[in-house]
Structures are given as C-alpha cells and as structure tokens.
C-alpha cells in the first residue's frame, strides 16, 4: 500500500528596504528513504533568481537561492509529488525491546553513539526543577512509556498559534502552557533526553485529512530511539505516532538544525515572511 501526496510550499518575503546580496536556503524537500520517493519536484521564485540544490551540514537536501539584489519582495514556490509507503509503527517484535530503565541506556558505547541526541540544546533545555513535571509512571516498556509521554505533552500544552516563535525557550513555553508543534516537539525531546533516551527533532509535512493540528505550515514532531527497535516518530501535537500521514523532511538536535527557511540578507529595516503549505492526497 502506498499513498501519493502533492505538496505545495509557498513563501513570500518582504523587506522594508531593498536588500542586496541575499541568500535563502530552504530545507523543505521530503527525505528520500525506504518509505518516501519523489515523483516530481518543481521550484521557482518570482524574481527568477539563481537557485540550486545543495546539502545542509547534516546531509539533508536544500535549495539555495541567491540574488544580487536589490530585492524588496520575493516569493518562492515548490511543488513536490511523492509516494509514501504506508508505515505501521507497530511492525516490530516486542520481545526485542528490553525492559525500561535497564542498563542499555547507560552503556558508554550507546551514550557515545547517540551523544548528539542525548545532550540538551538551548531550545531543549528544561528549566531547573521541571524534570519532575513528568513522572514516567505510566506504561510498561519503552514504547508505552514514550507513548504516555506523548500523551502527557499533548495534554499539558494548549495548541495556540502566535504566542511562541522559533526561538522560544522551554522555560517560556512552560510558563505559557501554550505553543505550536515545535514547542510540543521540544518539550517531548527534552523530557526523553532527560531520561537518557535519545530523541531528535523532525520537521516535515502533515497530511491533515483527518483533522490533525498543524495549520497550513510545516509540521514538527519528534523521534525517539527505542532500544531493540530503532527510531520511532512521536507526534505530541496530535497525540499519535508518526505514520503514513507524516512526510519527513529532516531531523536534527532541535529546530535550528531543521529550519525550513533561512535568509541571509544585507540591509536595514524589518522583514516579514509568510509561508503556506498544502498537502493533498491524490488517492
């Protein structure tokens, strides 16, 4: 079984004063792996500026646009069609999963291998005392424990667009009890890492056919390493496991490694950026 999706990504940037020598980098192309295959990809921008495909420092596909300027306003459009294999997150042998809190998380080789995803980053640092917010007493094995964490984050934060941004720390998020998908993901990741479980930030697209939260923007969720199974995607914004409707673009330590759009411009004044994403199922 496979689904076919058509993704449309639009961004429009405007600048108070025209900017010169600008570069924009998009990290919006779905990852190609065993369950995701591109069928078609088109990209354009309103100024006909030069663009090319490249890679981020962690090896994910990027689109880089360069303009000599001056630019006051530029819009970008990407259209991607892809095949997504239906993924069953429960397709593993439960006997392979060791009991929770066993020795495996403490092994030096394990901690070295996953060091990147165990260490807190500035966006995934729990404020002092807040590790106790979550008690880990729900569920039995790793998977159930992490699912319970997923549910807890889903219930603890209220999905509220506009109160946080991509630089908001967990301290502020916890103070507000509100946030959007990246805040949910960061909280989940921070709590999992605090327990020694490797967890990473995932950005991508969510097909919202089933009324999931996620807005007409790119979506974010988390992956945690479940001993004996591997990386499993958890979507705390929707209290589900990431499966067939989650189209992954990239993963990283936190949002900063996965920012969909980075703009490097030289100029004064403010800029505004608007994004719109549509994911349509073609089946």
């Amino acid at each position: 079984m496979a689904d076919c999706f058509r993704i449309t990504y639009n961004a429009e940037n405007s600048y108070d004063y025209p900017v010169t020598a600008a570069t924009w980098q998009f990290l919006i192309l779905p990852l190609e792996n065993e369950s995701q295959h591109h069928l078609k990809f088109e990209f354009s921008n309103s100024l006909g500026a030069y663009w090319e495909l490249s890679h981020s420092g962690f090896g994910f596909r990027t689109i880089r646009v360069r303009s000599k300027g001056p630019v006051s306003r530029i819009s970008f459009t990407a259209e991607i069609s892809l095949i997504k294999e239906v993924v069953n997150p429960f397709a593993f042998n439960p006997e392979m999963v060791p009991p929770f809190n066993g020795p495996e998380l403490k092994l030096q080789d394990f901690r070295l291998t996953f060091a990147r995803y165990i260490r807190p980053t500035h966006l995934t640092t729990l404020p002092p005392g807040s590790a106790a917010l979550y008690s880990w007493d729900q569920g039995e094995g790793y998977l159930e424990k992490l699912q319970a964490l997923n549910t807890w984050v889903y219930e603890y934060l209220y999905y509220t667009p506009g109160v946080t941004d991509v630089d908001t720390s967990l301290e502020e998020v916890l103070g507000l009890n509100k946030g959007v998908c990246q805040d949910f993901a960061h909280l989940f990741i921070a709590l999992a890492r605090n327990k020694g479980i490797p967890a990473r930030y995932v950005s991508g697209y969510l097909h919202q056919g089933k009324g999931y939260f996620g807005d007409a923007q790119m979506h974010a969720w988390a992956e945690a390493w479940v001993p004996g199974i591997g990386w499993i995607g958890f979507d705390p914004t929707n209290n589900i496991l990431a499966a067939s409707n989650h189209i992954k673009v990239a993963h990283g330590r936190d949002y900063d490694d996965c920012a969909p759009l980075k703009g490097i411009v030289f100029g004064e004044g403010e800029n505004t950026s608007q994004h719109a994403v549509a994911v349509q199922s073609q089946q």
Binding site: T23, S54, G57, R64
Partner: peptide, 10 residues
C-alpha cells in the same frame, strides 16, 4: 559566506 560549508563538505 553563505553555502561555504556545503562546498567544503562536498
């Protein structure tokens, strides 16, 4: 230089 690291990794 934007993109320098990508050129380096390549």
């Amino acid at each position: 230089v934007p993109g320098l690291f990508a050129a380096y990794r390549k």
